[in-house]
Design a protein around this nucleic acid. Structure first.
Length: 291
DNA sequence: CTGTCCCGCCATGGC
DNA sequence: GCCATGGCGGGACAG
């Protein structure tokens, strides 16, 4: 009802930069491979179907791998792990981050647990903004993070969403950390997914992942020249959110290579941040529950 | 003007 | 040498 974007008056034949963004590419990638019988993904195949150069595939694939959605099987071949693998991957990242990097504390306040600006993220990761944009776009397309802004400063910031991004009518997303705390517990990717927690509001990506991708303002995929004729159909016509931006994340500049390392650091920081209250809450809960 | 970030050159490492 | 991989920044685009 209030979607500013999405404007295609009488000129559908215009090159739009947005359509070539990594975020869109990632969304298309997900739509294309997040199907039932998909377990092997070839880089060339992906590049052809998405109509992008190989280089671009590497960009998103690396990020997806960092998050656990993909796993490199062999040369030019990746395995589809699915969104269900995210919790595990993040948990791994967390441990590694806590093990290696300990001097991370710098921009984590009690209230900005999940909020961070791209600039802060860059500083924390000793990276350059440029790289952050790229990764941020991909992560945002997966609804792992979302672009927002401080309630007052109005400055752009990024909020960690975790495995819940299917909230169609969840505007404020509840800023009550108190309430969220418990909730997030079961929903948080850091924690191992229980077994039955859905049927309420959010949770269980294994089931929601499909509809999850049905966002973005455009209709189906946003291909340009030709259409694959396989992805754009009537599979998931579940529209929910009409937003499309980018987020934050990592990169590197001092360090030699950044690939997953940057992402790992980034997530490590994030995880470390929320780990604070996470552990705290966990201990409390245990104490309360039973000794 | 600044912020965003696409495109692709070319370094790197493995055969 | 070829090829897969992916740093890295110029400079185009949006606001």
């Amino acid at each position: 009802m209030s979607s500013p974007q999405e404007s295609e008056p009488p000129n559908p034949n215009h090159y739009n930069r947005k359509d070539k963004s990594l975020g869109v590419l990632c969304t298309n990638f997900l739509k294309l491979y997040d199907r039932d019988d998909v377990d092997s993904i070839g880089l060339d195949d992906a590049a052809n179907r998405l109509d992008v150069e190989r280089r671009r595939i590497y960009d998103i694939v690396n990020i997806l791998e960092s998050v656990g959605v993909l796993s490199k099987k062999a040369k030019n071949q990746y395995s589809w792990k699915g969104f269900g693998a995210i919790p595990r991957a993040l948990d791994k990242l967390k441990e590694e981050a806590l093990r290696e990097n300990s001097s991370t504390s710098s921009c984590y306040h009690s209230e900005t647990v999940h909020l961070i600006s791209l600039d802060d993220a860059a500083k924390a990761l000793l990276a350059k903004s440029r790289r952050l944009y790229d990764i941020a776009n991909v992560l945002s397309s997966m609804d792992l993070i979302e672009k927002t802004q401080h309630p007052e400063s109005k400055k752009p910031a990024f909020r960690w969403l975790g495995l819940k991004g299917s909230s169609k009518n969840g505007p404020a997303t509840a800023l009550d950390l108190k309430e969220s705390k418990k909730r997030v517990f079961g929903t948080d990717v850091t924690n191992t997914l229980p077994k039955k927690y859905k049927a309420d509001s959010s949770l269980d990506w294994n089931s929601n992942q499909k509809e999850q991708h049905g966002k973005h303002s455009s209709k189906g995929i946003v291909f340009g020249p030709f259409t694959p004729a396989k992805v754009a159909e009537g599979g998931d016509s579940e529209d929910k959110n009409v937003r499309r931006e980018d987020l934050e994340d990592v990169a590197s500049s001092y360090r030699p290579q950044y690939r997953n390392q940057a992402l790992i650091d980034l997530f490590g920081h994030y995880v470390a941040a929320w780990k604070s209250w996470y552990v705290e809450a966990a201990e409390m809960k245990q104490i309360q529950e039973v000794s």
